[in-house]
């Protein structure tokens, strides 16, 4: 079973809202869709909403970091939104981090950050 993450396009911003837990394959599929969409609409920013996830392990963290790095090479920004407290704590204890990637509490916050930039 594959879970397709909806990706919205709004004023040059891609918004990927993860709705449920993803398998590694689903995350890789999301990665390639985001990257091709960034190119096709020449997006200036990618917002990935992960608030529905209750686990972000080393694979998920690494893949999201790769997405952000690729997006950055296209001259666009990535903001990861909605990491839950328990998930944040587990990531930190595992030694995982989103270094050099912007994070936001919710979509409003993410848009504020994009406006401020």
């Amino acid at each position: 079973m594959t879970r397709r993450v909806p990706i919205l396009r709004q004023n040059g911003i891609l918004i990927a809202s993860i709705q449920e837990e993803l398998s590694d394959g689903d995350i890789l599929a999301l990665q390639s869709r985001i990257l091709s969409d960034v190119v096709s609409i020449n997006a200036k920013a990618v917002v990935i909403d992960v608030s529905a996830l209750d686990v972000l392990d080393s694979f998920g963290t690494r893949t999201l970091t790769e997405i952000a790095s690729s997006v950055e090479l296209r001259g666009a920004r990535t903001i990861i939104v909605g990491i839950q407290p328990e998930v944040a704590m587990a990531m930190v204890l595992l030694g995982l981090d989103f270094r050099n990637i912007a994070t936001a509490f919710d979509l409003d916050h993410a848009f504020d950050l994009l406006r401020a930039a």
């Binding site: 209750d54 686990v55 972000l56 392990d57 328990e86 998930v87 704590m89 587990a90 990531m91």
Partner: peptide, 9 residues
């Protein structure tokens, strides 16, 4: 909840 997240991870 915090420990559940750790165990799941």
């Amino acid at each position: 909840r915090a420990d559940q997240a750790l165990i799941a991870t």
